[in-house]
Amino acid sequence: MKNNNLIIIVTGPSGVGKSTLLKNLPSDRFYFSVSHTTRPPRPGEEHGKHYYFISRKEFLEMIERDEFLEWVEVFGTFYGTAKSEIERAFSQNKHLVLDIEVIGATRLRSYFGSQAIFIFIAPPDLEELKERLIKRGTETEETLKERIKRAKEELKFATWFDYVIINDDLEKTKRQFFSIVDSELCKPFRNAQWKNLLNSFNFI
């Protein structure tokens, strides 16, 4: 599994704006891991693009076969990252991006080690997060309360991550996010141009 490509693990409470942020990464250099879920698709979502939408029975069978890198159950819905997604990214020689649940993210440190960076996206406050969830139009009053309650718990994990970005302004958040990614890609062991230069002088 080990190579010099970057693995970016992005997490944060539901509705904080992770998907909006990540869609700005170029797909020719970054592979976006597609998670499996047992929830039904929302309007506009496509199987294999936004999620792999599968039944609860199928998900449990995948757990039994040890096919997940990580998985979590949230409000009765399962979410998981299949190991095959990692293999697809590396086979294409792309940097891997995972947008996953907070608890699932915390389980991956020992697996990826220093090859991965962990970025937590936080809302400016819970009231703003609530407004974003309402605007999404996918929550009932009950699920909205559950998500806000869960967000309070998830925010306690923020200091565990390598970076914390408060998404109070999308343009500013994008600048901060890309600054982190660019900085990580400039590290000598990931910088292909630098390695080629060293090779040309027979340094390595």
Rank of each mutant, 00 (worst) to 15 (best):
W194E: 02
D66S: 09
L98Q: 04
E67Y: 07
E154D: 13
G80S: 08
L69P: 04
I54H: 14
R132F: 08
A89S: 14
M62D: 07
R42E: 12
V16T: 10
V102R: 10
Y31Q: 02
G113P: 15
E64P: 05
R65H: 06
N191W: 04
G44A: 08
P124S: 00
N199G: 10
L96E: 04
R29T: 13
F112K: 01
W71D: 06
E67P: 13
T20P: 00
F189Y: 12
E146K: 15
K195H: 04
R42P: 08
K145Q: 09
G17A: 11
R107I: 04
Y51T: 01
K83S: 03
Q176H: 09
P41I: 00
A89I: 01
K57F: 11
A158W: 10
D99T: 02
S35P: 05
T106E: 15
L126R: 05
F32Y: 10
E70N: 07
G15D: 09
N4R: 12
T106Q: 15
I180L: 07
F120K: 08
D162F: 12
T173W: 06
F178K: 12
N202C: 06
N199V: 01
P124A: 00
V16Q: 07
L197C: 05
P13F: 04
N93C: 05
N5K: 15
L170P: 03
L96C: 09
E87F: 13
E171G: 07
K130Y: 11
S110N: 11
V72S: 08
K174F: 12
R65Q: 12
E67I: 11
D28K: 14
S200W: 01
H47V: 01
S114K: 15
G113Q: 13
R29S: 13
F161D: 01
Y51M: 00
R190S: 01
K83F: 05
E46I: 11
L25C: 07
F118H: 12
E67M: 14
S91V: 08
V181W: 05
F178N: 07
K2W: 11
N191H: 05
Y52Q: 01
T143P: 01
E131M: 03
Y111R: 02
E131A: 10
E45Q: 15
R56N: 13
G44Y: 13
E127W: 02
Y79D: 02
